[in-house]
Amino acid sequence: MKKLQSSAAAAVLAAMSLVPLQAGAALFEDEEARRAILEIRARLTNMQNEINAKADKSNSLDLNNQNEQLRQEIARLRGQIEILTNELANAQKRQKDFYVDLDNRMRKLEPQTVTIDGKEFSVEQAEQRAYDTALAFFKAGDYKNAGASFYDFTRRYPNSGLAPSAQYWLGNTYYAQRDYKNAISAQQVVVRSYADSPKAADALLNIASCYLELKDRPSAKKALETLVAQYPGTPAAQTAQERLASLK
């Protein structure tokens, strides 16, 4: 009798001891999982009390009947303990999956460090996606949507490390559509506002090309001379010198 009671108690206590060991590391803030575990612990405690209560009543029963009933009850309780232990494992897995998913989503929102034109800076995910979308339009030859997207980018992210490039490509979308006056205006913003950007030299070269398309050779020559003077040694300056030689 005492052996059966001890065996049942040991089974329950073993399951109860498993709960904090398995759940302690992961279950912190997931309220649903915490409630599930508290409920499982309460049910295991009730089982222990139930076994003790049945043992107290056993004195009034026939010894053989008592032993058989206890065996059946212990088997039933062990089955329930197995079910509860499985439920606990599932609750732990759900919370682990929850935190893994949450961590992945948080990482996607974190700024990333990128290098453009030799400069390293931090870029938000939404910011990078907006720039990539605009550039994809340009590469696909959809200059109208590319221009609209780059223009929107420069208004939404004026202080972005990608802003000089976005403004430069905006000028190129106008050039590709033969809108040379707007192309000049867009590239002049690069030269004025982002003079220390490598894109400034390229912008001056583009300005000179626009003036040549407009048959304004003096303005084209001036833009090329400014480029050579302000950005010597750059690939754009080398190209500018070659064009100046052809304009003489």
Score class of each variant (00 low, 15 high):
residue 21 L to M: 09
residue 22 Q to M: 11
residue 24 G to N: 13
residue 24 G to Q: 15
residue 25 A to I: 06
residue 25 A to N: 08
residue 27 L to V: 12
residue 28 F to Y: 06
residue 29 E to D: 14
residue 29 E to S: 14
residue 31 E to G: 05
residue 32 E to C: 03
residue 32 E to N: 11
residue 38 L to T: 06
residue 39 E to A: 14
residue 39 E to Q: 13
residue 40 I to T: 11
residue 41 R to H: 01
residue 45 T to E: 13
residue 45 T to C: 02
residue 50 E to I: 00
residue 50 E to P: 01
residue 51 I to P: 00
residue 53 A to S: 05
residue 55 A to G: 11
residue 58 S to K: 10
residue 63 L to Y: 06
residue 66 Q to P: 01
residue 66 Q to V: 05
residue 67 N to T: 04
residue 70 L to Y: 05
residue 71 R to P: 04
residue 74 I to R: 15
residue 75 A to V: 06
residue 76 R to E: 10
residue 76 R to P: 03
residue 77 L to F: 09
residue 77 L to K: 09
residue 83 I to A: 12
residue 83 I to G: 06
residue 84 L to Q: 08
residue 85 T to I: 05
residue 86 N to P: 01
residue 89 A to E: 10
residue 90 N to R: 10
residue 91 A to H: 10
residue 92 Q to C: 04
residue 93 K to T: 11
residue 95 Q to S: 15
residue 96 K to C: 03
residue 97 D to R: 09
residue 98 F to V: 01
residue 100 V to C: 02
residue 103 D to W: 03
residue 107 R to K: 11
residue 108 K to C: 01
residue 109 L to A: 03
residue 113 T to M: 11
residue 115 T to E: 15
residue 115 T to M: 15
residue 116 I to G: 00
residue 116 I to E: 15
residue 118 G to A: 05
residue 120 E to D: 07
residue 121 F to E: 08
residue 121 F to M: 09
